[in-house]
């Protein structure tokens, strides 16, 4: 086994994952420019897992979970964190081996560590999606989620996509031997201006925690939710043929942006504690309806495998 060198900082872990997956043929995409709860929401995963067109992409996705905010004080819980996401369609037969290679790339030596695939099936009620797979344990710690998508937006996945999700902070803390996320070196510790994760995010965590929990205007949010929902339906209700260009342009992505927006606003409302247990299910159902409409639209586009007859 080759001697693996250990990364020195958070961004080193990210850069190594980027170059590893690039070397395995993935398109290295950039984060989606909207607030999402997880890397799965990026259209490069949600929409591109639909239809028969082959796909291979990897990217970092900043993710927001308003209810997880702890004012920057908890050693590993934050309302804003990073996920690393890989999606390959069809899932290659050697996906497990490829995945283990990525752990080697960030300095986890398979000869010294105990890697285990522990049953954990994935379901996203808001996306109308589910898959089977595992959480991957390294020495008892969950380092990734490994899923074979079976259904997305209510559509059966044919072929099946293999999805890998790494919780970057937790993984990097483990590899770097750091106990509190805010103490983790972000850039090289010997850089002229060394920065820790806390230098960059402690203040924003506190600001957003206060805003998420106590200040966000729920009336405005409720209104925005309704607007996003209506807007999504409005976009998808347009005729397929654009009257200006005369071309068939189904606007699946702009509609899906509204679905992402609705989903995030729901998360904010949830953090504000204004959604009761019974209402919660209803809101989730409304977002799922949007996700399904967008999936229905996407599979009628070229990227979704649609061919003009």
């Amino acid at each position: 086994m080759t001697q693996t060198t250990r990364p020195t900082c958070f961004q080193d872990v990210i850069l190594r994952l980027q170059s590893y997956w690039a070397s395995k043929g993935c398109a290295i995409l950039q984060p989606y420019d909207m607030e999402v709860g997880a890397g799965t929401f990026h259209p490069a995963t949600t929409l591109r897992s639909l239809g028969s067109t082959p796909w291979a992409a990897a990217y970092v996705q900043p993710s927001r979970r308003p209810t997880d905010g702890r004012y920057g004080e908890n050693p590993n819980r934050m309302q804003h964190y990073y996920q690393y996401q890989v999606l390959i369609k069809p899932s290659p037969p050697e996906l497990q081996t490829l995945y283990l290679g990525s752990l080697q790339a960030i300095g986890i030596d398979m000869a010294l560590h105990d890697i285990r695939f522990v049953e954990d099936d994935w379901e996203s009620p808001t996306l109308g999606a589910w898959g089977l797979g595992w959480e991957v344990w390294c020495d008892g710690m969950e380092v990734s989620q490994f899923t074979y998508f079976q259904q997305v937006g209510g559509h059966d996945c044919h072929p099946v996509s293999g999805e890998l999700t790494y919780g970057l902070e937790r993984l990097a803390m483990y590899v770097l031997g750091v106990d509190h996320v805010m103490d983790m070196p972000f850039n090289a510790p010997d850089a002229p201006i060394p920065l820790t994760y806390g230098d960059i995010f402690r203040q924003t965590e506190a600001e957003y925690s206060r805003w998420n929990f106590d200040v966000a205007n729920t009336e405005v949010l409720l209104k925005q939710f309704e607007e996003a929902e209506a807007h999504c339906a409005f976009i998808l209700g347009q005729p397929e043929v654009d009257p200006k260009t005369g071309k068939r342009i189904v606007m699946a992505h702009p509609a899906y942006d509204q679905c992402i927006k609705a989903s995030h606003i729901f998360n904010l409302l949830d953090a504000r504690g204004v959604i009761s247990v019974t209402e919660r299910q209803a809101y989730i159902g409304r977002v799922r309806t949007l996700a399904k409409l967008c999936a229905d639209a996407f599979v009628t586009t070229e990227a979704g495998g649609w061919q003009p007859s």
Binding site: P90, S91, P92, P93, G131, Y148, Q150, H158, V160
Partner: peptide, 13 residues
């Protein structure tokens, strides 16, 4: 589940 581009079902690939 199914996996890859096949139609066979098994508990995992």
């Amino acid at each position: 589940m199914r996996w890859g581009a096949g139609t066979l079902r098994w508990v995992r690939p």
